[in-house]
Amino acid sequence: MKKIAGKSIRGMVNILLILIFFVPFYWMALTAIKTLGQTLQSPPVFWVSNPQFENFISAFHAIDFMHYLKNSVITTIGVLAAQLITIVPAAYAFARYDFKGKGVLFGMVLATTMIPAQLVFLPVFLILSKLHLINTYWSLILPQATSAFGIFMLRQSFMQVPKELIEAARLDKAGELKIMFRIMLPMCRSTVATLALLSFIGCWNDYFWAKVLTTSDAVRTLPVGITALRNVDGGVANHIVMAGNLIMLVPILVAFVIAQKQILKAFAYTGVK
């Protein structure tokens, strides 16, 4: 008897938790396929039988969606490429070589984790404008072009490669480059992939840098551009706003569905440093 009661209480709590965290997304998706009339209806409708898929097209046309999308894609790819170039070699050097000043340099890398973007965006803007880079893709790519967390995590992963493997490779006449590309990187590719995934999510979703480092629409990305949707039709077109946001969400959702385990693991890792 007690057991059944406990089970049903658990069931109810489960449902409550799922409702709290799922309903907002459901509401978003539902609104996105409603007509304007349906969004204004009171009491609200919880199901629509005539989904308005043209809302997505309207969102595309209401703002210069393609332009922002293009900027988002370029910025994200640019950041990912830049991070690959900066993080992988740095992590490798910190993991495998002994060199003068290594401790200080690595300390600097760790120290930067304590300086969030929200702290330095103003001087960063000033520096970029001095370099005449404001409203170019560089202005969005450069400040995010490396990641202390990425270096830290990948270094850890490189260090876990047993030293005997490297020695075996040296006995097998493999040079430094071969050791790096044939032994070390293949062994750490899952970490690299996870880091890329995290960077992708962070960069695709980024609103802060794109907002504070741009003064015109030239390179603004989707998260900033999409905010203009709320002014469509005098600010009541919530179905269009939701439709636009849903489109923006698609790549992230795809990533989450494909690699949800790795994403959770990577996030959990941030908590055990």
């Binding site: 047993p162 005997e164 493997l165 020695e167 075996a168 490779a169 006995l171 044939r182 032994i183």
Partner: peptide, 10 residues
């Protein structure tokens, strides 16, 4: 040629 304790195979 060397054989390691933990095999060190790639």
């Amino acid at each position: 040629a060397m054989v390691f304790q933990n095999y060190a195979i790639y």
